[in-house]
């Protein structure tokens, strides 16, 4: 474990917590893409499927973190699609998730480390995570704005994989560890946040709200 991966995971936990708090406190999921949250839940379930296959005692933090990610993302989907369904902005959350799931699944079958079920599920989860934020960014471009709290969520969510890139550089240099598929997907994922990062740094940090040119 290195500092980059530690802060990456903390940033990821923060993102999940910020979103949960926003929905729970405001009792509304306006401005939140339910599709992105569904895709993240699918990512966690397919990536941590080993939790279900052979139950390992929860003594180590990694297992606990995996369970937190899965339960928090499923609970977030429950809040969006059931509890606060009335506030779900279905009209603007209109990016076709199939256009992300099918290519990710196809690519996972073509480009993977080992052609076996668990490995393909892991690869699918990595590819899907890289593009899972697109419905959320699409929704913001449709509504033309993002609530400040949602911007903080996106910043934390984007920073998590950006920090992982630093972690991979660190591990390559000191442990000569390379996981090419995760690195390539992680770079793509972080690039998708670039224009948001620019808006966040130039606007939200100064207390302004992100309003996209309609």
């Amino acid at each position: 474990m290195n500092i980059f991966r530690l802060f990456g995971d903390l940033s990821h936990l923060a993102a999940i917590a910020i979103l949960l708090l926003k929905i729970w406190k405001t009792r509304s999921c306006a401005g939140v893409s339910g599709k992105t949250q569904l895709l993240f839940a699918v990512c966690f379930i397919t990536r941590y499927i080993d939790l279900f296959l052979h139950f390992v005692s929860l003594y180590n933090t990694e297992k606990v973190m995996k369970l937190i990610y899965i339960s928090a993302s499923v609970f977030t989907c429950y809040l969006i699609f059931f509890k606060f369904k009335a506030t779900y902005d279905g009209n603007h959350d209109s990016m076709r998730a199939e256009f992300l799931i099918v290519p990710a699944a196809g690519l996972a079958c073509l480009i993977n480390t080992k052609f076996d079920a668990i490995e393909i599920l892991w690869t699918f989860s990595i590819y899907l995570e890289a593009v899972a934020i697109l419905p959320q960014l699409f929704l913001i471009s449709k509504t033309g704005e993002a609530e400040t709290i949602t911007s903080h969520y996106l910043f934390a969510q984007g920073s998590y994989r950006a920090l992982y890139i630093l972690n991979w550089i660190y591990r390559y240099h000191y442990e000569s560890h390379v996981d090419t598929i995760a690195i390539v997907a992680g770079v793509v994922q972080t690039i998708l946040y670039c224009d948001f990062f620019y808006l966040y740094i130039t606007k939200v940090v100064k207390g302004q709200k992100i309003v996209l040119p309609a």
Binding site: K66, I118, W122, N167
Partner: peptide
């Protein structure tokens, strides 16, 4: 046993 968890990250 079995699972040589190559991917040791979350």
């Amino acid at each position: 046993y079995g699972c040589d968890a190559v991917h040791d990250e979350l």
